[in-house]
Design a protein around this nucleic acid. Structure first.
Length: 259
DNA sequence: ATGTCAGCTCCCAGCTGA
C-alpha cells in the first residue's frame, strides 16, 4: 500500500491539485496538513467522488489536519493527550486513524516563529506531549506512523544552508532534542530518497526563488514504529508537485509499504 | 527587493502567519 503526507497549504485553494494528485499518485492513505478551513467546510463530497473517505479536524483560518483513505477509516482520534493550548486555544494540529492495516497520525507541529517567541516554547511543549502520546502506538504490533509537518530539520543535511539559518527556529538543538524524544518513544525517521539533487527536501519557501534554486528544507517527516518501518519498500519526495502555478510550498512525502 | 501566498478584514488594501 501507499501512504503519503502533504502540507497542502489551504485545502480550498489546492483542491483541484489534490484531486489530480490522488488520481496520478494513487495513494491509499494521505495525511494532510494546513487545511486552513473549518471542519464543516472540508470538501468531503469532492474527495469522496475521488474514492476517499475523510477524517478532518479544522479550525478556520489557520492549521487544520486530515486523513484521507480509500482503505477505510476507523478509530479516529482528534488531538493528542496532554496537548498544550496556544492563546487559550486547543489548535487543530493532530488527528489519528486506522486505515486498513496501518494506523497513522497526521501532525502539524507548531512553527515556533522565533526562539524568543512564546510560540517556540509551545512548539517544544507540543513535541513533549507527542512523545508521551505516541508511546503506546509506537510499542504496538500494528504498523503505526506519526507523519506530517514537524517544522524541524532533523540534521544539518536537511537544510540547504545551515549557516543562512543560524539563530532561527527549525534547526536548534532544543527542537532536535525534542524530536529525538519523540523518536525515543520507539519511532524511526523513514528517510526518503530525492527524485532530483541529493537532499530529499520537502519544503521550499515561496519567496526568493527558493524552489528553482533548491533552497529547501526536509521538515515533513514520517516517524514509524518497527512494524511500519519493516514494511517500507520505498520512500520519496514527489517534488514535481511543488512545480507550476498554484503549488503548495510543500511537496508530498510518499511511502510504499509491503502491506 | 522577503523576486510569495492564502485568508481575513471596521469591504478590497493592508494585515498576519508561514
Amino acid at each position: 500500500m501507499r501512504v503519503a503526507t502533504w502540507n497542502i497549504n489551504s485545502l480550498k485553494a489546492r483542491l483541484d491539485r489534490l484531486l489530480a494528485w490522488l488520481e496520478t499518485a494513487e495513494p491509499d492513505v494521505v495525511c494532510v496538513q494546513e487545511l486552513k478551513c473549518a471542519t464543516a467546510d472540508v470538501p468531503v463530497d469532492a474527495i469522496a467522488a475521488a474514492g476517499y473517505e475523510t477524517a478532518a479536524s479544522g479550525s478556520g483560518r489557520w492549521n487544520g489536519v486530515a486523513i484521507l483513505s480509500r482503505v477505510g477509516i476507523s478509530d479516529v482520534r482528534t488531538g493528542i493527550a496532554g496537548q498544550p493550548d496556544f492563546a487559550d486555544q486547543t489548535e487543530a494540529r493532530a488527528i489519528t486513524a486506522t486505515c486498513g492495516p496501518v494506523r497513522v497520525q497526521s501532525l502539524y507541529i507548531p512553527n515556533g516563529r522565533d526562539v524568543a517567541d512564546p510560540h517556540f516554547a509551545y512548539k517544544l511543549a507540543f513535541l513533549k506531549a507527542l512523545a508521551a502520546d505516541a508511546a503506546a502506538d509506537a510499542a504496538g504490533t500494528v504498523p503505526f506512523a506519526a507523519v506530517g509537518d514537524y517544522n524541524i530539520c532533523p540534521t544539518d543535511d536537511d537544510i540547504w544552508d545551515v549557516d543562512e539559518w543560524a539563530g532561527t527556529t527549525h534547526i536548534t538543538q532544543d527542537e532536535r532534542d525534542a524530536l529525538d524524544a519523540v523518536k525515543a518513544a520507539g519511532l524511526a525517521d523513514v528517510h526518503p530518497r530525492a527524485l532530483k539533487y541529493d537532499q530529499p527536501f520537502t519544503f521550499w519557501d515561496y519567496r526568493n526563488l527558493d524552489f528553482p534554486k533548491n533552497r529547501g528544507l526536509r521538515i515533513d517527516l514520517a516517524l514509524a514504529n518497527p512494524a511500519f518501518a519493516a514494511a517500507v519498500t520505498d520512500a520519496y519526495v514527489d517534488r514535481n508537485e511543488r512545480k507550476g502555478k498554484g503549488a503548495s510550498d510543500h511537496a508530498p512525502l510518499v511511502i510504499d509499504l509491503d502491506l
